[in-house]
Write a protein that binds this DNA or RNA. Structure first.
Length: 882
RNA sequence: GGGCGUAUAGCUCAGCGGGAGAGCGCUUGACUCACAUUCAAGAGGUCACUGGUUCGAAACCAGUUACGCCCACCA
């Protein structure tokens, strides 16, 4: 900075790698991310969705993180007492699988080393990936309060889990029971209903004959899973199905197993499907399980947790499921009991992690009773205490909670929160409490064994918004920041997480965990495909940062997105972002070069037309950006700032300012310097939440007050003077300049060649244009400008344009291509006539005049007048040539 | 079976009741002393289709089509 003043050789290309981490360190060292900043401000809190410690961050995290950081930095700049609380998730099943995988490469199984040693390995894994994740967030510029960082398995969160579990248990909302659950034979654990992915697969429907025991023929059942018939304990038909009414109560002999099973009636059966008769396997199908309960049927499990046929499968015991299926069908064929095989596409449940087909089986597990919990969670959203942005996700959420089944929370894993339940080996007492018990409260025995299972990861994630703030203790943090303000997350996780936080919070805190849920979409690849490991189309945020800088990555992720919709990630857009950063860099270079002798308050300000216009535009853009941020329209906010910075500031104002900077009086120069610095600083401040690094780097170099751009007041345009007349005047000047440039281009006037211009308008407009003479000269390459009144003789052999009541002539005797000019004018006339036709139609419409707002009618009238003038002006010009 | 989303310029997408927008790409011209990661000018669109509401619809409503997503216990 001092250096750069002496040597003007600041590179013309911005190198983000040179500055980004310098500023991150600076912010960290000064404690600017702390929630203790702005102690008097109204609290604002975002609790970060904790990334899994399974691996590194992907583009989805980068998006999620960027959105949160934009909101956080913006609110902090507004003066709010801001806390963005970071953390990571232990991600039970996912992390354990990764560690097992790593061990397997060394030929070790977790059973070889035992639970304790395995957990040690997993903690090592956790530390390694945690550090990487945190480093990535540093690279992204995330302004979270690292001193409050949490982990779902840390001491505090673990205590919260126990408190919540025990409380729910004591209320009867957590229970243990043998019910049908989803079993993944690969992961060797239960998974919850939402962890089962349903995919449509081509399969078959086997029609099998079950002979009646009375010898009166057979009933035909249809099944997609013949192997389960070994565990059949009934055949069900619809009670009103005439084909079967006389068969209800009879028995059939289950082939192969030679078990006598009843024919029962149940309304669940769909008469239209298959043969209308269903084999019932209560131990291996959720529906059959329910029917089994209704009819008190025996549950015979024939498939084991290893996915193989078990001892109840008779001669098929030990056989793989699919192998058994084939052999069994063959046996039916030989017995003459195979009626038919038809094709059927049906949905198959797979484990979301490993895509193994999920086996429904009956097992003793822990469950959360959902109905009483769901109700307040639904109500909180319907009452508007918590609001989804965009609102359409409200329905997704409520529909799910309204139809929810009890949540199986026990997992047969080692990595996670151990279930706080002990079984007394002496008297069988079940002890559920927060602290580890040493003796049985019932019999006094000390042979206690803790339940070996751990909890579903999402049980602890569900407590995240308050466990991280110190719950169950009544901490200052909790009092200050709960309920939090906004949760930022993807729509793919509404069920898994958002809903669980809602009902957990309503239960434990009796208060909604956040006011807004800001939902974003997925980051897809350039072709619109989901980024995935298997496709290999994922893009590493770090590589992008390395290549383009974090600001460009953030910019790309925020622009052109609208809430809740997916986005495609395209390399070309990064270039656009990088170019913009470079533009800012160079605009600041320009400013610095021209501010070397700048002294604040050296002279009183003499604001010119361009100054007043620019300051007004800055105020409007600031108000617009701030309002859009308030609505979570981050993309819109950024677009407005971008347009202002590039088009109005760089392409127009900077050029105009050169007049005074290079050739002005000291007074004039000073005003230009002041406005230049003020507005550029305003732009940087507006951009800071989106592009924190470059804005800090440049802001620090400009004249400024304060220690960091992070802590200055976010511009919102309030209190600014709006120079409306100059704004309008400048608009006309700019249109006029564009019109002259257009004529020059059409007439092939070489870019470098200056040409005379004649401007004609009524008295007031003419003086307004005269005021902008230097602007027009500079930006329209005018050699000289002659200002004339409308009744002055029309110049001969000139091109002409008309803009908002102003005529501009380009006298080009000799240079002018007559045919071209005629064509150009005729086209312009046609356009104007079309517009006029439209306006005339509107203005002769009684309905419009009567019902449209007065200002709209007025605007249309004004436009009509303007176009009529324009048309007359152009026609007159055309006449000259004919 | 239910629910939701998307259809706007060659591409990617904003806009969501009052004159069709951006970036990229394309055409033309310019190394103009902040920036060629630039500047200037331009071409390019019956805003998917059909009805309706309204003085006025790309935008609101209904329906249709196409693509996509989510949920669901069709053996």
């Amino acid at each position: 900075m001092e250096e750069s003043k002496q040597s003007p050789a600041i590179p013309t290309v911005y190198q983000p790698q040179d500055v980004e981490q310098k500023w991150y360190k600076f912010w960290l060292e000064h404690g600017y991310f702390s929630h203790k900043i702005n102690p008097e401000g109204e609290p604002f809190c975002i609790v970060m969705p904790p990334p899994n410690v399974t691996g590194q961050l992907h583009m989805g995290h980068a998006l999620d993180n960027t959105l949160q950081d934009v909101l956080t930095r913006w609110r902090r700049m507004q003066g709010r007492r801001t806390l963005w609380l970071p953390g990571t998730d232990h991600a039970g099943i996912a992390t354990q699988a990764k560690v097992e995988e790593a061990l397997a490469k060394e030929g070790i199984s977790k059973y070889d080393i035992g639970r304790e040693a395995f957990l040690e390995k997993t903690w090592e894994w956790k530390h390694r990936y945690h550090d990487r994740i945190v480093e990535q967030m540093h690279m992204m510029g995330s302004s979270c309060d690292w001193e409050l960082e949490r982990f779902t398995l840390d001491e505090g969160c673990s205590r919260a889990v126990r408190e919540a579990f025990v409380e729910l248990y004591n209320k009867g909302l957590i229970y243990r029971g043998s019910y049908i659950v989803n079993w993944c034979s690969h992961c060797q654990t239960t998974i919850s209903d939402i962890e089962v992915e349903h995919t449509e697969r081509d399969g078959h429907l086997w029609h099998l004959r079950y002979p009646y025991t009375d010898g009166s023929g057979y009933v035909v059942v249809a099944t997609t899973r013949p192997e389960t018939l070994l565990g059949d304990t009934a055949v069900a038909v619809h009670p009103e199905d005439e084909r079967y009414t006389d068969k209800i109560g009879k028995t059939v002999l289950l082939p192969v197993m030679n078990r006598e099973i009843p024919i029962i009636a149940d309304e669940y059966v769909d008469r239209e499907f298959g043969t209308g008769a269903v084999k019932i396997t209560p131990a291996h199908d959720p529906n059959d399980f329910e029917i089994g309960l209704r009819h008190k049927l025996e549950q015979i499990a024939v498939i084991g947790k290893d996915g193989k046929m078990n001892e109840n499968a008779g001669k098929y015991a030990g056989m793989d499921m699919l192998e058994c299926r084939a052999k069994l069908v063959e046996e039916f064929r030989e017995l003459g009991l195979l009626e038919d095989i038809t094709d059927l596409s049906h949905s198959v449940g797979e484990c979301y992690r490993c895509h193994t087909v999920v086996e429904p089986l009956v097992s003793p597990q822990w469950f959360v009773k959902m109905e009483p919990l769901a109700e307040p969670a639904i109500k909180a959203v319907l009452d508007g205490e918590t609001r989804f942005v965009p609102s359409r996700f409200t329905k997704t959420y409520t529909n799910w909670l309204e139809n929810i089944r009890d949540w199986c929370i026990s997992r047969q894993l080692w990595w996670g929160h151990r279930i706080p339940v002990w079984y007394c080996q002496d008297c069988g007492e079940v002890i559920c409490q927060v602290e580890d018990p040493t003796v049985c409260p019932k019999c006094g025995g000390s042979h206690l064994e803790q339940d070996p299972d751990v909890l579903d990861t999402w049980f602890s994630s569900g407590l995240w918004p308050f466990s991280t703030l110190g719950w169950p203790d009544d901490t200052e943090l909790l009092k200050t920041f709960y309920p939090t303000n906004v949760l930022v997350t993807g729509y793919d996780i509404i069920f898994f997480w958002v809903a669980r936080m809602m009902f957990s919070a309503m239960e434990q805190m009796k208060q909604n965990p956040f006011s807004d849920v800001f939902i974003h979409g997925l980051v897809r690849d350039a072709q619109g495909r989901k980024m995935s490991k298997s496709l290999g189309n994922g893009i590493d945020p770090l590589e992008i940062i390395d290549q383009y800088g974090a600001d460009s990555l953030r910019f790309t992720l925020v622009t052109g997105i609208s809430p809740g919709n997916d986005m495609r990630f395209q390399q070309e857009r990064l270039e656009g972002a990088r170019n913009f950063m470079n533009k800012l860099w160079n605009a600041t270079r320009f400013a610095l070069m021209n501010l070397q002798d700048y002294q604040a308050d050296a002279y009183p300000l003499e604001l010119t037309l361009a100054d007043k216009w620019l300051l007004t535009r800055l105020a409007r853009v600031s108000a617009d950006a701030d309002a859009n941020l308030e609505k979570y329209e981050l993309g819109e906010a950024l677009r407005a700032i971008y347009d202002f910075a590039w088009d109005e500031f760089c392409d127009w104002y900077v050029e105009l300012a050169k007049l005074r900077l290079y050739k002005g009086t000291p007074e004039q120069k000073h005003t230009a310097q002041t406005v230049l610095a003020t507005v550029l600083r305003g732009i940087l401040e507006l951009l800071h939440p989106f592009a924190p690094f470059i804005t800090e780097e440049l802001w620090q170099q400009l004249p400024h007050e304060g220690d960091s751009i992070m802590l200055v007041k976010y511009p919102n345009g309030q209190g600014a003077t709006l120079y409306e007349a100059e704004e309008k005047q400048m608009q006309t000047v700019m249109d006029l300049i564009r019109a002259i440039r257009n004529m020059r281009a059409e007439m092939n006037v070489p870019t470098g060649k200056k040409a005379p211009v004649i401007i004609s308008a009524g008295e007031e407009l003419l003086s307004q244009m005269q005021e902008a003479e230097s602007y027009i000269k500079m930006l329209a390459a005018a050699e000289s400008i002659e200002f004339v009144s409308p009744d002055s003789p029309v110049p001969d052999k000139a091109a002409k344009a008309h803009v908002r009541g102003v005529d501009a002539y380009l006298p080009l005797a000799g240079l002018i291509d007559l045919d071209k000019e005629i064509a150009r004018i005729e086209k312009e006339i046609a356009n104007t006539e079309n517009e006029l036709k439209r306006l005339a139609g509107k203005l002769s419409n009684q309905g419009f005049l009567a019902k449209a707002p007065a200002d709209v009618v007025e605007k249309e009238r004004a436009k009509e007048g303007e176009y009529q003038t324009k048309l007359a002006s152009l026609r007159e010009h055309l006449e000259l040539f004919k």
